[in-house]
């Protein structure tokens, strides 16, 4: 290269090492994948069951995230909300919490002897742990903060005066939210939903702790990958490859949003 080159070696060398460190394992996954046996491996009934379960639970938890997360984000974005910064910090905790700790916490609250779980069991005969519903609960727990922060950012960035304009036109607060606030924040909601879905799809720690690993019921893809590594490494690689493809597709769907928003 002519001119002054890219930069000082003290920056370029560690930078390149970092890049290789990030890319090499993924490249290894692609290189070592049993390409010829891939259709057969992925066509296996247990793999398909894990895939189905993963897509189902991730989608269900994304739906829950939207139902509860968008209103929560709206509340956090209200300038008049008392203790807003404290509440925001609380919402952020599951984001940095080790997922396995989240799983333990869920067990303590929703488990058969848990604070809420015991009451659920006695009153309705419902026991959550180690069911498909528990998978959805675990995934929602870890994915919700992603959605809330993304939507809250979009709501705060939006010009509030559009809401005022809508009010002067006679729109009720609910109509304003539905027809002005939400559409203006739609890109943020979409980005948040995609992030939440990807996070739910990859969930491992909270799921295995709170829901266990029962094939067809609570064994999602990441759990299947981990368990297959012992018995059938090729299947584990094939499943990993599938998750990698999904992740890259998610990133492509978000494009620069991922980089700019979070």
């Amino acid at each position: 290269m002519r001119g002054r080159g890219i930069g000082p070696p003290a920056l370029v060398i560690p930078g390149v090492v970092g890049l290789v460190f990030l890319v090499l394992p993924l490249a290894g996954l692609v290189i070592r994948a049993p390409w010829t046996r891939l259709p057969q491996l992925l066509g296996d009934e247990s793999v398909l069951a894990a895939l189905r379960l993963s897509l189902l639970t991730a989608t269900a938890s994304t739906a829950l995230c939207l139902v509860f997360g968008v209103p929560l984000a709206w509340l956090l974005a209200q300038p008049s909300l008392p203790g807003r910064s404290v509440l925001r910090a609380l919402v952020t905790v599951p984001l940095v919490l080790p997922p396995v700790v989240g799983g333990v916490a869920l067990l303590l609250v929703l488990g058969r002897r848990g604070l809420v779980g015991e009451w659920l069991d006695r009153a309705f005969g419902v026991s959550l742990p180690f069911t498909t519903a528990a998978v959805v609960v675990a995934e929602t727990f870890v994915a919700l903060p992603f959605l809330v922060l993304s939507v809250e950012g979009a709501l705060r960035a939006a010009d509030r005066r559009y809401e005022e304009a809508a009010a002067t036109l006679g729109a009720s607060r609910w109509t304003v939210f539905r027809r002005v606030t939400l559409p203006l924040a739609a890109p943020g909601v979409l980005a948040g939903a995609v992030l939440a879905w990807a996070r739910a799809l990859g969930e491992f720690g909270a799921t295995i702790t709170f829901a266990g690993s029962f094939p067809g019921r609570t064994q999602t893809m990441p759990l299947a990958v981990y368990l297959a590594l012992e018995t059938n490494p090729d299947a584990a690689i094939a499943l990993s490859l599938l998750l990698l493809v999904v992740s890259v597709a998610t990133l492509a769907a978000l494009r620069d949003r991922w980089v700019t928003r979070l």
Partner: peptide, 15 residues
């Protein structure tokens, strides 16, 4: 929203 007062804002604020 319960007044009947129309406003034309300075920068219009068209949705």
């Amino acid at each position: 929203e319960h007044r009947r007062i129309g406003v034309v804002f300075q920068d219009y604020l068209l949705f």
